[in-house]
Write a protein that binds this DNA or RNA. Structure first.
Length: 296
DNA sequence: TTGTGATGGGGAC
DNA sequence: TCCCCCTCACAAT
């Protein structure tokens, strides 16, 4: 259930653990078997993310080959390896950690795949198992570029801060509610349901306000907040948006997550800033949360 | 044991 | 707007 912070964290993990190494590529589940065979044994040469999309580049084939992964709602990667292989147990949707099997010899042995593993990448030191992706496919370089061109500016992309005017332009040209717009990956790549709710709250913007009726100045502020919040999520390894200054001390009873999010999953609870009960409704089939007292 | 929801997205109407 | 896909943890029974 990753938003952009998770895919960028994944790109970093692959950069550290796999780039430059020869990879055994397989599909224990079978659904990616035909493609896996084509790049099995190739070297991973690059890893990068754009929005929620992860691109892994391989050499060795007749044409440049990319594995394109989008985790969707349920997808996740699970990592395990020897002592030189330092990675989080998993990134993406919640998954039980894999118990690492230590052989008597002390040598690392790849664990059996757990559950439905669409894709396994293995080096001499560790494995990455992908399960439940929305998308997992092999692309040519041309196709990879086309996929990236469909996406709007990424708050975690290179020079993201300079992209504010482009974000303003894309929002201003639409009449749809800004809460819908910023979930559109062609308008901002990487923003999902949590960053939508939290970004709009921190910016004081009502999710229902039409894009063309938000001032350029406020849209710029929203962009900067999205950059801030998502950088924090990327570095912290989890989405946390509440400024320590706003965190209730001691934490609110029965609201243990109170210091993590302002509005997301806090329906009916008091706003951490103004006390107004947090509102909820469906927007585009997704649960939307906001504070009617703080957002206009 | 069954049911349900979850940080997505695409395609058919 | 609805429907379908992908997977699994956790709640409800």
């Amino acid at each position: 259930m990753p938003e952009g912070d998770a895919s960028h964290r994944l790109a970093r993990a692959f950069d550290n653990l796999f780039v430059g190494q020869r990879c055994a590529v397989s599909s224990p589940q079978g659904r990616f078997a035909r493609s896996a065979e084509l790049i099995d044994g190739a070297h991973l040469t690059s890893a990068h993310a754009v929005g929620k999309h992860l691109f892994l580049g391989f050499d060795g084939g007749p044409v440049p080959s990319w594995i394109h992964v989008h985790l969707g709602l349920y997808g996740s990667w699970r990592f395990s390896g020897d002592s030189t292989f330092v990675a989080p147990a998993s990134i993406g949707a919640p998954r039980r950690a894999v118990t690492t099997l230590a052989a008597d010899t002390g040598e690392w042995i790849p664990p059996d795949p757990v559950g439905q593993v669409r894709l396994r990448l293995r080096t001499a030191h560790g494995v990455a198992d992908l399960s439940g992706p929305n998308r997992c496919e092999l692309l040519t370089d041309e196709e990879r570029i086309a996929a990236e061109l469909k996406l709007g500016p990424d708050p975690l992309g290179p020079d993201a801060r300079l992209a504010a005017p482009e974000f303003v332009r894309r929002v201003k040209s639409r009449r749809r509610a800004i809460g819908e717009l910023i979930m559109d990956q062609a308008i901002a790549a990487g923003v999902g349901n949590i960053y939508r709710a939290e970004g709009l709250f921190v910016s004081g913007i009502s999710p229902m306000r039409r894009g063309d009726r938000v001032s350029a100045n406020r849209i710029t502020i929203l962009w900067d907040h999205l950059c801030d919040l998502m950088e924090r999520g990327l570095e912290g390894g989890r989405i946390e948006t509440v400024d320590p200054q706003d965190a209730p001390v001691p934490p609110l009873e029965g609201d243990l997550e109170a210091s993590r999010w302002y509005v997301y999953h806090r329906t009916g609870r008091p706003c951490l800033r103004c006390g107004t009960p947090i509102s909820e409704k469906l927007m585009q089939g997704r649960r939307l949360f906001w504070c009617a007292g703080c957002q206009h």
